[in-house]
Amino acid sequence: MAQIGLKYLICSKLTETETEATYTGGKIMAYAIKADMSIEVNEGVLRGDDRIIENVKEFKSGKLTLNGDHLDYETRALILGHTLTTIESGTNKKMTAKGSDDGAFVGVGFYATSIKNNIRGFRAIWLTKVKFGVPSESMETRGEAINFQTPTIEGTILTNVLDVWKEEATFPTEAEAKTWLNTMASIGGTP
């Protein structure tokens, strides 16, 4: 299945009990520019009679690299654990980043247009448990041409308490994909 585009980059705070994973405070993270996922597996091989008789491959963890137009202070506070305070007239905010800050585990979602046999669908992906690190940023002086600099943030994909690391579904309309992601992230109410 070929894919084009990327839209609707969202996250939501994860709370886990022994038997349940729930999400609250869902929000749009940024306008989506790029999402890269790479998955690591644990592999076990059992040999017998001079050949491989069993081979097991299981999810270990993954790396999620996101590039968006802007990570606002509220998103950074959630995913990185930074502190926000109000300054001056009560409308400006200041973010304080400490070395000991530790952000929340979050669910992360997005969707892309998929094409198979000239039929378009919308593949929605919900990563159930992600822990982000401080984003990389680059800044440069303006020259002859305008070059936008946007933040890249990297997170670790983990399994949640239910041993699930990803949920995905493909829908015939963009609206259905977005509605499903909103339900997963509890955007607009609780699921």
Rank of each mutant, 00 (worst) to 15 (best):
M1V: 14
A2K: 11
A2Y: 08
Q3C: 06
Q3M: 10
L6F: 09
K7C: 10
L9H: 04
I10T: 13
C11L: 10
K13I: 13
K13M: 11
K13F: 03
L14W: 00
E16D: 04
A21E: 01
T22Y: 03
M29G: 07
A30I: 03
Y31M: 11
A32C: 11
K34D: 15
K34A: 15
A35G: 02
A35Q: 05
D36E: 14
M37I: 15
V41A: 09
N42C: 03
N42K: 11
E43L: 04
G44P: 00
V45M: 08
V45F: 07
V45W: 01
L46H: 09
R47I: 09
D49W: 01
D49R: 11
D50I: 00
R51A: 10
I52M: 07
N55V: 06
K57M: 14
K60E: 08
S61G: 04
K63T: 14
L66Q: 04
G68M: 06
H70W: 09
L71N: 02
Y73Q: 15
E74W: 00
R76Q: 13
A77K: 15
L78N: 06
I79W: 01
G81I: 04
T85P: 01
T86I: 14
G90L: 12
T91S: 13
T96W: 03
T96F: 05
A97Q: 14
K98W: 08
D101K: 08
D102R: 12
D102C: 11
A104H: 05
V106F: 01
G107E: 00
T113R: 09
K116R: 10
K116N: 12
N118G: 05
I119E: 15
R120W: 03
L127F: 09
K129M: 02
K129I: 05
K129N: 04
K129A: 12
K131R: 11
K131D: 02
G133T: 10
G133L: 05
V134D: 06
P135N: 06
S138Q: 13
A145I: 13
A145P: 00
A145L: 11
I146H: 12
F148I: 13
F148A: 15
T150R: 12
T150P: 01
I153S: 03
I153R: 06
T159W: 01
T159Y: 02
D163E: 13
D163L: 05
W165M: 13
W165K: 10
E168V: 08
E168A: 11
T170E: 12
T170L: 04
A175D: 15
K178E: 13
T179S: 15
L181H: 02
N182M: 09
T183P: 00
M184P: 00
A185N: 06
G189E: 03
T190G: 07
